[in-house]
């Protein structure tokens, strides 16, 4: 059995090396496709992460007017009976809160405290949506309250954005998968035409379809692996560049998906590659009528 795998691997490497120059364009195309997918995925992944950390559905924020004393609101909030934690953020606290949530954003520290509004934050795990809405309505009618921000409303808006983002990424995943299939299919088909005569002679002397197909599967896996590594490195470089240059000092940071996700993506690519290669070889063999034609 090990002789069989050794043969398939060595023959696959031979096919890959033999067709490398002709297949280079396909490898670069596949790498570009995967890179674009990874880049878009990384941006979406980062946005989703940022949205996730920016919203808390069980939170009510009450922004107070400039001339209002914070002390007079505390009693009103306790009277709401929400049994929640109440914390007041003065301008300095509000600024620090934003800085804590975006640790890489050095320019935030340079902003004057006057730009950060004062507010109360009510947080409780036991708050129901109805209680939260009632409390928000009551607080909006209280004198000295500038505005009320409900975490739930924000969260709902953000979730909609996340859902759109997921749909987009899912669609992109499907399209990337289909495109990869076609690229690999065509690359293998070109290889098959280059080795047409040898393939027909193998069939003449009794080679099975498995024997003919597997080296091409191995060759396509080598090509796809190379394309994936290239795309992965390009994405790393792209994200590093964006973070270091364009997003420097911004509150938004880009992150690439973790190694497990990359591994998962690679495994999916290997399945797609195997499927395309097998389909390409089998349909090619089915189209061959006679060894006398070569």
């Amino acid at each position: 059995m090990s002789d069989q795998y050794m043969y398939i691997l060595s023959k696959g490497i031979k096919i890959f090396i033999g067709g490398f120059r002709q297949n280079l364009a396909s490898i670069i195309t596949l790498a570009t496709l995967i890179f674009m997918y990874l880049a878009v995925f990384s941006v979406n992944f980062s946005v989703a992460k940022a949205v996730g950390s920016a919203t808390d559905s069980r939170t009510l924020r009450v922004f107070i007017a400039e001339d209002s004393e914070p002390e007079k609101f505390k009693d009103t909030m306790i009277e709401l009976g929400l049994n929640s934690d109440i914390r007041f953020y003065d301008r300095a606290d509000a600024k620090q809160r934003v800085i804590d949530r975006a640790p890489d954003s050095k320019n935030l520290e340079e902003l004057p405290e006057d730009l950060f509004p004062r507010f109360f934050e009510l947080t409780s795990d036991n708050l129901t949506d109805i209680a939260l809405a009632d409390a928000a309505a009551k607080m909006e009618q209280t004198d000295g309250v500038k505005s009320v921000e409900s975490g739930k409303k924000q969260n709902e808006k953000m979730q909609k954005i996340k859902r759109v983002s997921y749909v987009f990424v899912t669609l992109l995943t499907v399209l990337t998968g289909i495109s990869s299939c076609f690229i690999i299919f065509n690359t293998i088909r070109l290889s098959l035409y280059r080795h047409h005569r040898a393939i027909m002679l193998y069939t003449l002397v009794g080679a099975t379809r498995f024997f003919i197909t597997m080296p091409y599967v191995a060759a396509s896996k080598i090509e796809a692996t190379l394309a994936f590594i290239l795309a992965y490195l390009m994405n790393k470089f792209f994200i590093s560049f964006l973070t270091a240059k364009l997003l420097a000092g911004s509150f938004f940071t880009l992150v690439t998906p973790g190694p497990w996700f990359s591994l998962f993506l690679y495994i999916v690519l290997m399945f797609i590659t195997a499927f395309s290669a097998i389909f390409s070889v089998v349909t090619f063999l089915m189209g061959q009528k006679s060894v006398n034609e070569v």
Binding site: R197, A198, L201, T203, L204, V205, G206, A207, T208, R209, F211, V291, N292, V294
Partner: peptide
């Protein structure tokens, strides 16, 4: 089927006028 044809061909040697070599 295809597999049986492959195994059968291992027992049949074929020679052509145009050799059919690589």
């Amino acid at each position: 089927n295809h597999k049986s044809v492959a195994f059968m061909r291992r027992n049949v040697g074929v020679i052509f006028q145009d050799y059919k070599l690589l």
